[in-house]
């Protein structure tokens, strides 16, 4: 079992990166890899509540975030600096996430086997 960290650095809609990242995360978890997620920069916006992607013709992969626990994906880190930059609070986020400093995220990268950026 490998420890796999998936980083979301891009905004959720308008490109397929975020959806591909989440598909990759769920698929890896189905293959019993130990998957963790990091949200940074505009990628953070993936976690906002009250999104309605279907209204702009995008697939609603945001709802799938609610199933992360069932896929045993329990480690979700969000970048503290990005939270500040975008003026967001933890209760703006739809799933429980650990607000982490850059140093904590760097330490997490050291700890895992592979880091994939979407």
């Amino acid at each position: 079992m490998k420890k796999l960290c998936i980083v979301f650095k891009q905004a959720p809609h308008g490109t397929a990166h975020g959806r591909e990242g989440l598909d990759f995360a769920l698929l890896s978890a189905s293959f019993e890899q130990e998957v963790s997620l990091v949200f940074t920069g505009e990628g953070l916006l993936t976690l906002l509540k009250e999104q309605d992607p279907e209204s702009i013709g995008c697939k609603d992969y945001i709802s799938t975030l609610g199933a992360l626990g069932l896929y045993d994906i329990d480690t979700v880190l969000v970048c503290q600096e990005s939270m500040h930059e975008f003026n967001l609070q933890q209760n703006d986020l739809r799933i429980p996430a650990l607000v982490s400093s850059a140093e904590e995220i760097a330490a997490h990268f050291d700890h895992v086997d592979e880091v994939m950026v979407f």
Binding site: K9, E42, I105, A106
Partner: peptide, 25 residues
């Protein structure tokens, strides 16, 4: 001990700035 790869210019991509946030000097 991580090798960070950057392929896009910061003018178009957040890659470099995001990387610099976490890379260890």
């Amino acid at each position: 001990m991580i090798l960070h790869l950057i392929k896009d210019t910061p003018a178009n991509s957040s890659a470099l700035n995001t990387c610099l946030r976490y890379a260890r000097k």
